[in-house]
């Protein structure tokens, strides 16, 4: 009797210990995976699904990167061989290991017409459908790998110097980046040529970032979820008939906004300081 009690006890203890160890392992492993996938500022190949989805869909095979590396067009102007755009994240790159990405200042995306990197994707992490135009052909201009952002304080055009390097480098010349002409009041006789990026056109290829003349580029590509705001559905462009439809048939006096502040009377909050 005592012996079987002992056996049972031993069995229970071993089971508990195994469960405990498995839990520790599982927690550590989950922790690692969760940290590993949180590398926000990474640019993915054309057609990539939104980052969160991309990370669970990408099977890390490297076929996109191989297709990118082996282009006859991967040549510099002087005829020397150029590296492919896409890299595979390795240990120490601080990106989820084995996923493809690119760094515009090293090799930007040259936006090949036939987009070799996308159709080879076996897991559809690079979504070909998102790059098809109305005729059902691949169209690289539909890619949204990121969005270029201008830091106007370090951009010499905003100083009044005549630089349009990014504007000229852009593959969608005068569409993704346009120049805004403004009078230079300081000299009184010159114009500012200010680069303006249009997010509906910009593919995020990074040629502008590569071309930028400043020590650290004043124009740079960020993933879209980090470089764009979101207006939500609250504000409606009343002057835009199509947008106005979103408001529906509601009369103006039916449209009311309620938040914490509206519980108080206007005199209350106008006379007091309000914490926003």
């Amino acid at each position: 009797m005592a012996n079987s009690d002992n056996n049972r006890r031993k069995f229970m203890v071993t089971t508990l210990q195994s469960v405990g160890l498995t839990t520790i392992g599982g927690l550590l492993w989950s922790g690692y995976c969760d940290e590993a996938k949180s590398s926000p500022l990474v640019l993915r190949p054309p057609g990539a699904l939104p980052e969160e989805q991309f990370l669970d869909t990408c099977i890390k095979c490297g076929l996109c990167s191989e297709a990118c590396a082996n282009r006859e067009s991967n040549k510099n102007r002087d005829g020397t061989q150029r590296e492919g755009t896409l890299k595979m994240a390795k240990g120490g790159d601080h990106k989820l290991i084995g996923t493809p990405y690119f760094i515009p200042t090293e090799v930007p995306c040259y936006m090949c017409d036939d987009i070799p990197c996308v159709p080879v994707c076996p897991s559809e992490a690079l979504d070909m459908k998102s790059l098809l135009n109305k005729k059902g052909e691949l169209e690289i201009n539909k890619a949204h790998m990121g969005l270029a952002v201008v830091h106007k304080e370090s951009c010499v055009s905003f100083w009044g110097l005549q630089c349009d390097a990014c504007y000229r480098a852009c593959p969608l010349l005068d569409e993704a980046i346009t120049l805004d002409y403004q009078k230079n009041e300081r000299t009184g006789k010159h114009a500012f040529l200010l680069p303006v990026v249009h997010s509906d056109v910009c593919t995020g290829c990074g040629l502008c970032e590569k071309a930028c003349i400043t020590e650290k580029p004043a124009i740079f590509v960020l993933p879209r979820e980090h470089s764009m705001g979101r207006d939500g559905d609250h504000y409606v462009k009343g002057w835009d008939k199509k947008d106005q439809q979103r408001a529906g048939d509601r009369k103006l006096d039916e449209i009311e906004t309620h938040d914490k502040r509206s519980e108080k009377s206007p005199t209350d909050y106008l006379n007091k300081e309000i914490e926003y």
Binding site: I59, G62, L96, G98
Partner: peptide, 24 residues
């Protein structure tokens, strides 16, 4: 975690990718 967990640290594909694309 929503990602292929073993693939996130698999020495097998790390070594294979190392051979193909460079180890780091």
């Amino acid at each position: 975690t929503g990602i292929a967990a073993f693939e996130a640290l698999s020495p097998i594909t790390i070594m294979q990718r190392g051979i193909i694309f460079g180890f780091g």
